[in-house]
Every structure is written in structure tokens, then in C-alpha cells.
Computed example of a mutant assay.
Amino acid sequence: MPADTRPPAIALMGPTASGKTALALAWAQRHGGEIVSVDSALVYRGLEIGAAKPGAEERARVPHHLLDLRDPWQTYSAAEFAEDARAAIADIVARGRLPILAGGTGLYFRALLQGLSPMPPADPATRAGIAAEAQARGWPALHAALAEVDPEAAARIGSTDPQRIQRALEVYRLSGRPISAWQRAAAPPRLPCRVLKLAIAPDDRADLHGRIEHRLDAMLAAGFLDEVRALRALPQLRAHPRPLELPAIRAVGYRQAWEHLDGAGSAAEFRDRAIFATRQLAKRQYTWLRGERDLRWFDPARDGQRLQRALDAFLGTR
């Protein structure tokens, strides 16, 4: 097989508060890189402190892409992200710079690196029928039914994963085509670079939990609640009938802060709920990362030298 001569790019993945941003900044400065944010909160204007958005000083040191693309009352899809990210990466490569993709939004990484399947949208009637069958027969029985029509998907999906079983059966019943076939047909256009995929993830969850608490306390000290008060005062959000359903306000921390300012619990209770929500986000991110192929794992506290060697080998530097 001929060598891949495309220029390099780095994908820095990992759970929230694992240290991806600091590492991306250091590497970008050292290797002539530019950062492409892969974070579904950072696309929204006005989400600054609570989203840990890079500030003016960091942006002056290193060019950043895909920040502040939408107002907080607007939406932004994974498909839009993939298109915008491809354009940013092509521009960075064309200027001889190193793209560093950094963030924790798994769906965005999947849309960019693997593509999104143009499969049938959700159908409430079909879903209701599947749910009724599950109530009568149990999800393991529906998993067995899925195995008959789509053994590839059934092998990937656990028998106790109702959401994915339901979606796979829904797609098959709506289209007559297995969901695995839709997913295979979703190969995205080839990126103009070869990508080294790295997971920055502490081995010790207690370490990550401590980082989460420390970061939230720093955000509160920096005025996070005042930031949410300013969002609540925006006319477009004041007029919105269900602001808590907006993707921007559903971002971890923001939803809990919004509810606290609505009178739901004390400041201490808000802090506890925000920490719990952030830990749950990290847990989902670990689950997604474990399913990623060609991903190399590093503990930021223990594997610094090994991580640097992996980067140097990929870039061909010493």
C-alpha cells in the first residue's frame, strides 16, 4: 500500500475538563498549528465562562476556528459542523499550518471523520408501535427480532439498549433497509490530511472529578452566574416560550444555572447539580471514546512523555 502523503492533522478528544484546551494551545504554538473547536457549546455567542471558551489572550496566541457561529436562540447541526470544519481544515492545510481538532463533542467528531447517515427521520407512529411491542414482549425479544433483519447492527447493540434497538427497527420498518447498510453508505469525503486520533483522559475518575469541581468553582468566581443573567436578559431569550429546550441553554452548567436563577434550589444545590451533570457528561464521553477505532489513549497526568513521543513520531519531528 502506498504511503499516505497527505499533510498531518491532530484530533484531541477526551472528556470535559481533561486538559485538551491547554494541550492544544501548547502544541499549536510549538508546531505552527491552528485550533478547530469540536465543541457544541463553543459555537454559541454569549457562552463564554461556563463553556470554558478560549479568551482573547488565547485567541491572540493561536488562531481558533468554529467559535461564535450562532446566537444562543439559534440551532446548529452536526452536519453543519462537518461542512464548516472541512472548510476550516482545508484553509489551514492550504496555508501550510497544522490543524488541531480539539473538543469533546463525539457527534461532531463522528460527523466530520465518519459521516452522518442520511437515513429516514424519526416517525412517532412507528416508534410508538415498537415501544408497545417492547412493553408486551420485552426489549431482549425485540433485539432478537433485530438480529433476524440486521445481524450486523444487533451484534453492535446490546439487548438492554432500548433507544438504539428502537431506532434500528424503526429505520428498517420505514425503509426496508437495515440501519447498518445506511451507516456504511455514509462515508464522508476524504479529508485533505491524515489524522492522528488521541484521547486525553485521566485513568483515575476521582482525578477527573476533582478537576471538574475545581473548574466549576473557578467559573463561579469568574462570574458564571452573571453571564447566565445576561443571557436571560436578551430579548430573544426572554421572548422564547421554552428557553430550556434550546441547545445552547441545554449545555451542561447553563441549564442548571438557568433553573437556579428561576428559583430552583440554593446556590449550594445548584453547584451540586452542575457538578453531577458535568460528571454524567464525562461518563457519556468515556463511553463514546471506548467505541472509537484507531484511538490512542493517554492520561494527561502520567503519560506526558509518551504522548509527546507519539506526536513527534506522527509529525516526523524529534
Rank of each mutant, 00 (worst) to 15 (best):
P247W: 01
A310C: 15
A153N: 03
P151M: 07
G104F: 01
V43S: 06
V195I: 07
S175H: 10
P202F: 09
A222N: 09
L25T: 00
P235K: 08
C193A: 15
D84W: 01
W73C: 08
D204N: 14
T16V: 15
P151E: 04
I49P: 03
M1A: 14
H64L: 08
L69A: 13
P121Q: 13
R309P: 06
I89N: 01
R70E: 07
A128F: 12
S40Q: 09
A201Q: 09
G316V: 02
L113H: 02
P241C: 05
L47A: 06
Y172K: 05
Q305N: 09
G253C: 05
A111C: 04
D71V: 04
L169T: 03
D204Y: 09
L289S: 01
I165R: 01
P72V: 01
I130D: 04
G176D: 07
A186I: 08
L142A: 02
L98P: 00
R255G: 09
D262G: 14
R167C: 03
F224A: 03
T287G: 10
C193Y: 05
G265F: 12
Q308F: 04
P235Y: 10
A88M: 04
S18R: 00
R318I: 14
R194M: 07
A131K: 12
A78K: 10
L112P: 02
L281P: 03
E133Q: 15
R177M: 12
A82F: 01
G104C: 11
A239G: 04
A277F: 07
A248R: 02
P7I: 02
L116A: 05
G263I: 08
P247K: 00
A154S: 06
T105A: 05
L12M: 09
S175M: 12
